[in-house]
Protein backbone atom coordinates (compact mmCIF):
# COMPACT_ATOMS: atom_id res chain seq x y z
CA UNK A 1 0.00 0.00 0.00
CA UNK A 2 1.24 3.46 -0.75
CA UNK A 3 0.36 6.56 1.14
CA UNK A 4 -1.66 9.01 -0.87
CA UNK A 5 0.06 12.26 -1.54
CA UNK A 6 -1.75 15.37 -2.65
CA UNK A 7 -0.66 17.35 -5.67
CA UNK A 8 -2.41 20.62 -6.39
CA UNK A 9 -1.99 23.66 -8.57
CA UNK A 10 -3.20 26.95 -7.08
CA UNK A 11 -3.69 30.01 -9.31
CA UNK A 12 -0.77 28.86 -11.40
CA UNK A 13 0.49 31.09 -14.19
CA UNK A 14 3.13 29.63 -16.49
CA UNK A 15 5.19 31.44 -19.07
CA UNK A 16 8.13 30.91 -21.38
CA UNK A 17 9.94 34.24 -21.40
CA UNK A 18 7.21 36.83 -21.89
CA UNK A 19 4.79 34.42 -23.57
CA UNK A 20 2.16 33.33 -21.06
CA UNK A 21 0.98 29.79 -21.76
CA UNK A 22 -1.20 29.05 -18.74
CA UNK A 23 -2.94 31.67 -16.65
CA UNK A 24 -4.43 31.42 -13.17
CA UNK A 25 -5.11 27.69 -13.30
CA UNK A 26 -6.37 25.52 -10.43
CA UNK A 27 -6.14 21.75 -10.41
CA UNK A 28 -6.54 19.10 -7.71
CA UNK A 29 -4.97 15.85 -8.83
CA UNK A 30 -7.20 12.98 -7.70
CA UNK A 31 -5.09 10.78 -5.40
CA UNK A 32 -4.79 7.13 -6.40
CA UNK A 33 -6.55 7.69 -9.72
CA UNK A 34 -5.55 8.06 -13.34
CA UNK A 35 -5.89 11.58 -14.67
CA UNK A 36 -5.49 12.32 -18.36
CA UNK A 37 -4.89 15.86 -19.59
CA UNK A 38 -6.15 16.38 -23.12
CA UNK A 39 -6.42 19.31 -25.46
CA UNK A 40 -5.28 20.57 -28.86
CA UNK A 41 -1.62 21.22 -29.67
CA UNK A 42 -0.29 24.27 -27.87
CA UNK A 43 -3.06 24.37 -25.26
CA UNK A 44 -0.50 24.23 -22.44
CA UNK A 45 -1.03 20.64 -21.31
CA UNK A 46 2.63 19.63 -21.44
CA UNK A 47 3.59 22.94 -19.85
CA UNK A 48 1.19 22.24 -17.00
CA UNK A 49 2.69 18.78 -16.53
CA UNK A 50 6.19 20.26 -16.43
CA UNK A 51 5.04 22.65 -13.71
CA UNK A 52 3.48 19.80 -11.72
CA UNK A 53 6.85 18.04 -11.98
CA UNK A 54 8.69 21.22 -10.76
CA UNK A 55 10.61 21.47 -14.06
CA UNK A 56 9.05 24.85 -14.72
CA UNK A 57 8.67 27.41 -11.96
CA UNK A 58 5.31 29.22 -12.05
CA UNK A 59 5.50 32.95 -12.61
CA UNK A 60 2.40 33.25 -10.45
CA UNK A 61 0.67 30.94 -7.97
CA UNK A 62 2.06 27.71 -6.61
CA UNK A 63 2.18 23.98 -7.11
CA UNK A 64 1.67 22.28 -3.75
CA UNK A 65 2.73 18.80 -2.72
CA UNK A 66 0.97 17.80 0.49
CA UNK A 67 0.16 21.42 1.11
CA UNK A 68 3.74 22.65 0.77
CA UNK A 69 5.07 24.59 -2.21
CA UNK A 70 7.06 22.21 -4.45
CA UNK A 71 9.82 24.75 -4.90
CA UNK A 72 10.52 24.92 -1.15
CA UNK A 73 11.28 21.20 -0.77
CA UNK A 74 14.64 19.58 -1.54
CA UNK A 75 14.42 18.27 -5.07
CA UNK A 76 15.81 14.86 -4.14
CA UNK A 77 13.17 14.43 -1.47
CA UNK A 78 10.45 15.34 -3.97
CA UNK A 79 11.94 12.79 -6.38
CA UNK A 80 11.09 10.01 -3.93
CA UNK A 81 7.40 10.95 -4.08
CA UNK A 82 6.96 12.36 -7.55
CA UNK A 83 8.26 10.74 -10.73
CA UNK A 84 8.16 11.99 -14.29
CA UNK A 85 8.62 10.39 -17.65
CA UNK A 86 9.49 13.28 -19.98
CA UNK A 87 8.44 13.34 -23.59
CA UNK A 88 11.84 12.75 -25.13
CA UNK A 89 14.36 11.33 -22.69
CA UNK A 90 17.80 10.43 -24.07
CA UNK A 91 19.30 6.96 -23.75
CA UNK A 92 23.08 7.28 -23.41
CA UNK A 93 24.90 5.36 -26.11
CA UNK A 94 25.64 1.74 -25.26
CA UNK A 95 23.79 1.74 -21.92
CA UNK A 96 22.16 -1.56 -20.92
CA UNK A 97 18.51 -1.91 -19.98
CA UNK A 98 19.35 -2.81 -16.38
CA UNK A 99 21.70 0.15 -16.10
CA UNK A 100 19.16 2.61 -17.48
CA UNK A 101 16.32 1.30 -15.31
CA UNK A 102 18.74 1.47 -12.37
CA UNK A 103 19.05 5.25 -12.88
CA UNK A 104 15.54 5.39 -11.43
CA UNK A 105 17.16 4.64 -8.07
CA UNK A 106 19.08 7.93 -8.18
CA UNK A 107 16.95 9.77 -5.59
CA UNK A 108 17.21 6.83 -3.18
CA UNK A 109 20.98 6.57 -3.26
CA UNK A 110 23.67 8.59 -1.63
CA UNK A 111 27.04 9.63 -2.97
CA UNK A 112 29.40 6.64 -3.20
CA UNK A 113 26.84 4.37 -1.57
CA UNK A 114 26.73 0.87 -2.98
CA UNK A 115 23.58 -0.71 -4.33
CA UNK A 116 21.56 -2.38 -1.59
CA UNK A 117 18.89 -5.07 -1.79
CA UNK A 118 16.10 -2.47 -2.06
CA UNK A 119 17.69 -1.14 -5.22
CA UNK A 120 17.96 -4.58 -6.79
CA UNK A 121 14.43 -5.51 -5.72
CA UNK A 122 12.97 -2.26 -7.08
CA UNK A 123 14.71 -2.63 -10.45
CA UNK A 124 13.75 -6.31 -10.66
CA UNK A 125 10.11 -5.51 -9.90
CA UNK A 126 10.11 -2.72 -12.50
CA UNK A 127 11.60 -5.04 -15.13
CA UNK A 128 9.05 -7.76 -14.34
CA UNK A 129 6.10 -5.36 -14.38
CA UNK A 130 7.07 -4.09 -17.82
CA UNK A 131 7.96 -7.61 -19.00
CA UNK A 132 11.47 -6.74 -20.06
CA UNK A 133 13.40 -8.79 -17.50
CA UNK A 134 14.77 -10.94 -20.34
CA UNK A 135 16.26 -7.87 -21.97
CA UNK A 136 18.07 -6.69 -18.82
CA UNK A 137 21.60 -7.06 -20.18
CA UNK A 138 20.80 -5.94 -23.72
CA UNK A 139 21.88 -2.55 -24.97
CA UNK A 140 19.02 -0.04 -25.22
CA UNK A 141 20.21 0.96 -28.72
CA UNK A 142 19.22 -2.47 -30.04
CA UNK A 143 15.60 -2.36 -28.88
CA UNK A 144 12.45 -1.55 -30.83
CA UNK A 145 10.49 1.61 -30.09
CA UNK A 146 7.90 -0.24 -28.04
CA UNK A 147 10.50 -2.03 -25.96
CA UNK A 148 12.38 1.20 -25.44
CA UNK A 149 9.29 2.98 -24.14
CA UNK A 150 8.77 0.13 -21.68
CA UNK A 151 12.37 0.56 -20.51
CA UNK A 152 11.70 4.22 -19.74
CA UNK A 153 8.49 3.36 -17.92
CA UNK A 154 10.44 0.73 -15.97
CA UNK A 155 12.93 3.44 -14.98
CA UNK A 156 10.09 5.59 -13.67
CA UNK A 157 8.69 2.54 -11.81
CA UNK A 158 12.07 1.78 -10.24
CA UNK A 159 11.91 5.26 -8.73
CA UNK A 160 8.97 3.89 -6.68
CA UNK A 161 7.06 7.12 -6.37
CA UNK A 162 3.46 7.42 -5.24
CA UNK A 163 2.77 9.97 -7.97
CA UNK A 164 3.80 9.35 -11.56
CA UNK A 165 3.57 11.98 -14.29
CA UNK A 166 3.91 10.98 -17.93
CA UNK A 167 4.18 13.25 -20.94
CA UNK A 168 2.65 11.50 -23.95
CA UNK A 169 3.75 7.98 -22.97
CA UNK A 170 2.18 6.46 -26.09
CA UNK A 171 3.64 8.71 -28.79
CA UNK A 172 5.58 6.87 -31.51
CA UNK A 173 4.03 3.55 -30.50
CA UNK A 174 1.81 1.41 -32.68
CA UNK A 175 -1.70 0.65 -31.46
CA UNK A 176 -0.74 -2.65 -29.80
CA UNK A 177 2.05 -1.03 -27.80
CA UNK A 178 -0.16 1.94 -26.90
CA UNK A 179 -2.72 -0.40 -25.36
CA UNK A 180 0.00 -2.38 -23.66
CA UNK A 181 1.51 0.72 -22.03
CA UNK A 182 -1.86 2.05 -20.90
CA UNK A 183 -2.90 -1.36 -19.51
CA UNK A 184 0.33 -1.39 -17.56
CA UNK A 185 -0.36 2.04 -16.11
CA UNK A 186 -3.95 1.09 -15.29
CA UNK A 187 -2.71 -1.99 -13.38
CA UNK A 188 -0.20 0.12 -11.55
CA UNK A 189 -2.93 2.47 -10.47
CA UNK A 190 -5.21 -0.35 -9.42
CA UNK A 191 -2.67 -2.56 -7.64
CA UNK A 192 -0.49 -0.01 -5.91
CA UNK A 193 -2.77 2.98 -5.69
CA UNK A 194 -0.26 5.07 -7.62
CA UNK A 195 -1.54 8.48 -8.60
CA UNK A 196 -1.03 8.84 -12.34
CA UNK A 197 -1.23 12.01 -14.39
CA UNK A 198 -0.59 11.76 -18.09
CA UNK A 199 -0.78 14.04 -21.05
CA UNK A 200 -2.40 12.15 -23.91
CA UNK A 201 -2.78 13.10 -27.51
CA UNK A 202 -5.46 10.58 -28.26
CA UNK A 203 -8.82 11.63 -26.86
CA UNK A 204 -10.26 8.15 -27.45
CA UNK A 205 -7.59 6.41 -25.41
CA UNK A 206 -7.84 9.06 -22.71
CA UNK A 207 -11.59 8.47 -22.43
CA UNK A 208 -10.97 4.74 -22.28
CA UNK A 209 -8.28 4.67 -19.60
CA UNK A 210 -8.61 7.78 -17.45
CA UNK A 211 -10.65 7.98 -14.27
CA UNK A 212 -10.48 11.74 -14.50
CA UNK A 213 -10.28 13.77 -17.65
CA UNK A 214 -8.93 17.32 -17.71
CA UNK A 215 -9.76 19.10 -20.96
CA UNK A 216 -7.67 22.18 -21.72
CA UNK A 217 -7.81 24.88 -24.32
CA UNK A 218 -5.78 28.12 -24.58
CA UNK A 219 -4.10 27.64 -21.23
CA UNK A 220 -7.19 27.06 -19.15
CA UNK A 221 -9.21 24.06 -18.02
CA UNK A 222 -12.50 23.87 -19.91
CA UNK A 223 -13.89 20.89 -18.03
CA UNK A 224 -12.73 18.17 -15.68
CA UNK A 225 -14.32 15.06 -14.25
CA UNK A 226 -15.09 11.46 -15.14
CA UNK A 227 -15.05 10.94 -18.92
CA UNK A 228 -18.62 9.62 -18.90
CA UNK A 229 -19.85 12.76 -17.16
CA UNK A 230 -18.09 15.47 -19.10
CA UNK A 231 -17.46 14.16 -22.61
CA UNK A 232 -20.21 15.54 -24.82
CA UNK A 233 -20.24 16.68 -28.44
CA UNK A 234 -20.39 20.26 -27.12
CA UNK A 235 -17.20 19.82 -25.09
CA UNK A 236 -15.36 18.17 -27.99
CA UNK A 237 -16.38 21.07 -30.21
CA UNK A 238 -15.35 23.64 -27.62
CA UNK A 239 -11.96 22.04 -26.95
CA UNK A 240 -10.92 20.66 -30.31
CA UNK A 241 -13.13 22.67 -32.62
CA UNK A 242 -14.64 19.69 -34.39
CA UNK A 243 -18.14 18.28 -34.60
CA UNK A 244 -18.53 14.75 -33.33
CA UNK A 245 -20.81 12.02 -32.11
CA UNK A 246 -20.27 10.65 -28.63
CA UNK A 247 -21.65 7.23 -27.73
CA UNK A 248 -20.79 4.52 -25.20
CA UNK A 249 -18.19 2.15 -26.60
CA UNK A 250 -19.39 -1.46 -26.80
CA UNK A 251 -16.34 -2.85 -24.90
CA UNK A 252 -15.71 -0.69 -21.87
CA UNK A 253 -18.83 1.42 -21.85
CA UNK A 254 -16.69 4.56 -21.87
CA UNK A 255 -17.51 7.46 -24.21
CA UNK A 256 -16.49 6.81 -27.80
CA UNK A 257 -15.87 9.90 -29.88
CA UNK A 258 -16.60 9.77 -33.56
CA UNK A 259 -15.34 12.93 -35.26
CA UNK A 260 -17.33 14.28 -38.15
CA UNK A 261 -15.01 15.74 -40.75
CA UNK A 262 -16.05 17.98 -43.61
CA UNK A 263 -15.59 15.05 -45.95
CA UNK A 264 -18.34 12.98 -44.35
CA UNK A 265 -20.67 15.70 -43.21
CA UNK A 266 -24.04 15.84 -44.92
Amino acid sequence: MTRDHLLEARHVTLAYGDRTVVEDLDLDVAPGRITAIVGPNGCGKSTLLRALARLLAPTGGQVLLDGEPLASRPTKQVARVLGLLPQSPVAPEGITVADLVGRGRHPHQRLLARWNEHDYAAVAAALEATEIADLAERSVDELSGGQRQRVWIAMALAQQTDILLLDEPTTFLDIAHQIEVLDLLAELGRERGTTIVMVLHDLGLAARYADELVAMRDGRIVASGAPGDILTPELVEEVFGIRSLVMPDPVAGRPLIIPIGRHHAR
Binding site: R50, A53, R54, L55, T75, K76, Q77, V78, A79, R80, L82, G83, L84, L85, P86, Q87, S88, P89, V90, A91, P92, L100, R103, G104, H106, P107, Q109, L111, Q159
Partner: peptide
Amino acid sequence: LALGRDLGTLRLGDDAAAALGVR
Protein backbone atom coordinates in the same frame (compact mmCIF):
# COMPACT_ATOMS: atom_id res chain seq x y z
CA LEU B 1 34.78 13.57 -9.96
CA ALA B 2 32.37 13.58 -7.01
CA LEU B 3 29.65 14.95 -9.29
CA GLY B 4 30.20 12.01 -11.65
CA ARG B 5 26.97 10.28 -10.65
CA ASP B 6 24.88 13.42 -11.19
CA LEU B 7 26.68 13.87 -14.49
CA GLY B 8 25.72 10.33 -15.48
CA THR B 9 22.07 11.08 -14.71
CA LEU B 10 22.25 14.34 -16.69
CA ARG B 11 22.96 12.21 -19.75
CA LEU B 12 19.28 11.12 -19.71
CA GLY B 13 18.27 14.69 -20.58
CA ASP B 14 17.77 17.72 -18.35
CA ASP B 15 14.10 16.98 -17.64
CA ALA B 16 14.68 13.33 -16.74
CA ALA B 17 17.64 14.27 -14.53
CA ALA B 18 15.66 16.97 -12.73
CA ALA B 19 12.80 14.53 -12.18
CA LEU B 20 15.30 12.12 -10.61
CA GLY B 21 16.33 14.76 -8.09
CA VAL B 22 19.43 16.26 -9.71
CA ARG B 23 19.70 19.99 -9.11
